[in-house]
Design a protein around this nucleic acid. Sequence first.
DNA 1: ATTGAGTCTATACTATACTTTAAGGTATAG
DNA 2: CTATACCTTAAAGTATAGTATAGACTCAAT
Lengths: 135, 135
Amino acid sequence: MRDLTIGNLAKQSGVSAETLRYYERRGLITPSQRTASGYRLYQTDASQRLRFIRRAQALGFSLDEISELLSLSDDPNQSAAAVKQLTRTKIQDIDLRIRDLERMKQGLAALETHCPGHGSTRDCPILGALNRDDD
Amino acid sequence: MRDLTIGNLAKQSGVSAETLRYYERRGLITPSQRTASGYRLYQTDASQRLRFIRRAQALGFSLDEISELLSLSDDPNQSAAAVKQLTRTKIQDIDLRIRDLERMKQGLAALETHCPGHGSTRDCPILGALNRDDD
DNA sequence: ATTGAGTCTATACTATACTTTAAGGTATAG
DNA sequence: CTATACCTTAAAGTATAGTATAGACTCAAT
């Protein structure tokens, strides 16, 4: 059970074989070897690498950023400071997006409470607000 | 000043001419007429329609949703209830995205505070957490 | 008449993360 | 030996919201 074909790794990790090939093109994961006929063979640590990718994605990192994290992780001579910086930047990104969304939500909620929810769109305050002449 | 060429409308509205043609392909805005040589001519209400689009985008609506809002807006026989429903759904979408981002942020913040920010990546708790065997 | 700016269409490219398809080669069970 | 399950590559398609490019035509001014 040391070497997995792409299909078996796919089953084991819950990532499709196509996605594995895609990750390989993106430089995220490489099979440890190929058979004489060209089949990819992965070792079990491939699963761990995929778990790393999945977790980092869940934390909001893009594949490019994950690629960077993996490079840092693969080389113990790299500094933990770089990882911390990447994490901080990501937290700031997320904060910004949350603030944007909060603003949108406030705007929508204000409109929503003023809309009677019946009658012609001619009298709809939501459309009215979007159509205002000022600004 | 009644009829604007695409370039003039672009300048006036702050949207590029290419974007105006793109919006036309998407069915969001159509020039009121064309010159004999095929030049698009817009009336001044085009600016208002673009302002509507810009405002709706700022509130988080996609171009498809804006297209729907415009269709509702263009026909006074449509019900304001449809607009209100679209708005509610959008508020829920945004809420969901905010919660997702909050979760990501909590996860990242927890990792960030535990990272010393110096030393080898081998001892970095952020990478460690991403690599954990459990789950 | 010519130059330069503006416009036309169609197509391709950008970013992100994949999925799908086509056409073919390989491994294995019966 | 053959069915079929699995694998290979390259290219195209999906969604979103545009931007960029090429080659041709038009308009206004000199």
